[in-house]
Design a protein around this nucleic acid. Structure first.
Lengths: 110, 110
DNA sequence: GGGAAATATGTCATATTGGACATAGATTCT
DNA sequence: AGAATCTATGTCCAATATGACATATTTCCC
């Protein structure tokens, strides 16, 4: 692929690269999602252990029940920032949050 | 403070609560910022170790040099999501990312 | 000191995220 | 079964994050 065509594709919103790059992107994306899901599971686990309902956690977060549901589902519209802030709000400390993230990579060869 | 006034203040964008809640919020905010800074430092460290320039990392991220500078500065406009994606891009795995986060809480009593 | 390369800072337009609401579905209790 | 409580899903629009660009500042080498 020549430079001009590459530019055109990228301008149109395509990430252009070779197969290795493509696989790498997917791998990173997969890890990213796994981390989010691990944190989401952490939120649910801690909330239930504390005996909070989604609604009451939502109040503490200054948010809504529906968003808490999405947080715990690891919904696309939920950022890691929101997951982390949620965990801090229910009393997790950085070390605990780190544990969740560490767990996200545990099933794969590091 | 009566309910009506509270509502008015909250409507105006004020989080209304008692002193303990206020301190707790600040503490969580502080931890959140520390986590971001720890991740930001991780990005810089790994980038430099690899011998990349901010511009070349920006290319890999599909972003710009200025944003990489902000990433490494832990700028307000940089989300943890972006920090994590940056770290994954320069070859950090979840376990390594967890280490950075764990470090963020290490100077304080857990 | 001067030029080049690297990094930092400010701003803008666009894309993404988040809180809110409505409503659907699930679970539990009697 | 059905009422009550809890959780899930979809949509809207306000707020925030992001890439891009321009430009300033710092660092390094000669």
């Amino acid at each position: 692929m020549n430079e001009a065509k590459r530019k055109r594709l990228e301008q149109a919103g395509w990430a252009v690269g070779d197969a290795a790059q493509f696989l790498e992107l997917n791998e990173h994306e997969a890890r990213f999602v796994e981390m989010k899901l691990a944190l989401a599971a952490g939120v649910r686990q801690k909330r239930e252990r504390i005996g909070l309902t989604q609604t009451s956690l939502a109040e503490r977060l200054g948010s809504s029940q529906s968003r808490v549901a999405k947080i715990e589902a690891g919904d696309r519209s939920v950022s890691i920032d929101l997951l982390v802030r949620s965990l801090l709000t229910i009393g997790a400390n950085p070390a605990e949050i780190a544990q969740y993230i560490k767990r996200a990579g545990a099933t794969r060869a590091a």
